[in-house]
Design a protein around this nucleic acid. Structure first.
Lengths: 344, 344
DNA sequence: TTGTAAGCGTTATCAT
DNA sequence: ATGATAACGCTTACAA
């Protein structure tokens, strides 16, 4: 088991009893003052006295005792697949802000989904550690849903429509891809390829659907679809496929910025000039996009808004209620220098 | 205060009493079995019976009750300035792995250091919520140290030598910059500029020192020093300063990858070709570096190793012991295409 | 306007 | 080889 390490006595701070006796009142009074009990009628003078003692001692209610008593922890957990992807950074930020507003802490952990790692999360997140669970990114298969349910706390998928598809919030990926495609079409492109995410990712799938819908709406044949894995490496490989495809394309819609970084790299390596030979546009706008070569045209959706909304839903909706929400929010085209009319 | 939201009754799982009665033993027995109490002599048959019930009910010990009793939470917190910076992502990963090994959870939060936000952390991290606190990144000034101490849990600075400088782990930034400079010098450069981080960051300062030491050791005058802020924006601005400086430089050492992204961008904008007109090398190696234009030569240090070491130190060292550790680990030069001999 | 007391689920120290 | 019991610090219904 754990190497029991003694790192000195875990110091405990002053307790509510310390405050009470020092202020000459009962613990109950202190508790109710600190929790703004609306039913409490109390002499202003004693209230002040108590508050003074609280400040003097630097009293902090013990979180463990409190949540043992109330069965609420005021913390929620957010599991992300990859801390190195700045896109998750944005989701985290939004979630954190929302959690803070709701007076809760946000516990973030990365998940590499293996069956055994579920064991681990059970231990870390089970009974009495968190009030709820947010799962960003994929891999929530059927059996895992059961595991999750058995864990106890209510959970919600973020930007994934889990398989049971009962509780999730997603961005409007279809609308985003349609916006991207229409930008390309307005520039005059007709042969547009799509560089997707992992085949089992449903954000990737929704983006692919949006792409196809937009192409067909314009009476155009959808182009080549390459599958990346949402990393720069995968993006580079996907771009190579697209460049090697029989049909020559004049534009590529890339499913996320990390892939786009790789795609631009692969184009450079192949001597294909962006945007003169090939336009590139990406879903999501990260700060790095502006500094790429060339600066990347993107479709901006608020990932932080997504994180925030997820927290709100988790905290306010009853634990078994269905939640199937496609976030309505502004989706903006950020035109930089990676898109241009096709050269004829 | 918080909008009291009722999201249904917080469900509690089975308790240790449920297990005990069902298995026909006392709670104490269950507890000691589950905690591998070495002093426990017990009939294998009853142990198995208990374990079976545990599995059957899916019993999970209640974390709140446990830490109320033991005064240990088995979670530590890591505060980072910016989740969008992949460098912190690496630190987080390392920390998480180490925490998991020590059977603890890692709670990550971002900090924007204002005086009031300390209030917030006091509430979230105070008494009984975490066993310790890791502070990555800067801004821990004197008065804040006191705040932190009053918070209760032991804390440790990661990659920052806080001002009291009593407890920290840092990477060997001086050695890293020396390695970078010597690479440049071996290529034949003599006029090397330094694109630093924020003036008040001590990693930036240590890197600057390493740079100056390495230049002087080679009997060369240190070149222009520009201050960025560890973002691409700041890096671009810094590079502009360097390009505008009176003295012409043939190489720039950049203090981190985010700045380097901006620096490469600014060079492109100015029509300065990297590496023909100007070599660029950066401290830290992030996965994006390989895909920049040109692929960026870097000095690799293990950020995840840093995170892991920080966790270990926090967990094993007595709470008031001084910790001043410069991490000894391999530091490697990753040569890509942004450095070359100066053109004459 | 304030106090009393029960109980949240666990672990540790005794007994037996 | 197992059981009884107190204690951890807090909140809340009820009593005074």
């Amino acid at each position: 088991m754990a190497d029991e390490v003694r790192t000195g006595v875990p110091r405990r701070g002053p307790t509510i009893s310390d405050v009470a006796s020092r202020a000459g009142v009962d613990r109950a009074v202190v508790s109710r003052i600190l929790n703004d009990d609306p039913r409490l009628r109390i002499k202003p003078s004693t209230r002040e006295r108590v508050l003074a003692v609280v400040a003097e001692l630097g009293y902090q209610p013990n979180a463990a005792a409190r949540s043992l008593r109330t069965a609420r922890t005021r913390t929620i957990a957010l599991l992300v697949p990859d801390f190195e992807n700045p896109a998750y950074g944005q989701i985290i930020k939004g979630a954190e802000t929302a959690a803070t507003k709701a007076d809760s802490a946000l516990l973030t952990a990365s998940m590499e989904l293996g069956e055994e790692s579920f064991e681990h999360y059970a231990k870390q997140l089970g009974n009495g550690r968190v009030d709820g669970l947010l799962l960003a990114g994929g891999g929530i298969t059927g059996t895992r849903e059961e595991h999750l349910d058995r864990l106890g706390p209510p959970w919600l998928c973020v930007n994934r429509t889990g398989p049971g598809k009962r509780r999730y919030v997603v961005l409007d990926d279809e609308r985003a891809t349609e916006l991207a495609v229409s930008h390309l079409l307005e520039l005059g492109h007709t042969r547009v390829a799509f560089l997707s995410g992992p085949a089992d990712s449903d954000t990737a799938e929704r983006r692919r659907l949006g792409y196809i819908a937009a192409m067909e709406a314009a009476n155009l044949d959808p182009g080549f679809v390459a599958h990346g894995d949402y990393t720069a490496d995968g993006g580079a490989a996907g771009m190579q496929q697209i460049l090697a495809a029989k049909r020559r394309h004049t534009a590529v819609l890339v499913a996320n910025v990390a892939s786009a970084v790789g795609a631009l790299y692969a184009a450079r390596q192949a001597g294909v000039h962006v945007p003169d030979d090939m336009s590139v546009i990406s879903i999501h706008d990260l700060s790095i996009a502006a500094f790429l070569d060339p600066p990347l045209t993107t479709v901006r959706m608020s990932l932080s808004g997504l994180g925030a909304r997820a927290v709100d839903l988790l905290l306010t909706r009853p634990r078994n209620e269905e939640i199937r929400e496609v976030l309505e929010q502004p989706i903006d085209l950020i035109i930089r220098e990676s898109t241009a009319p096709p050269r004829r």
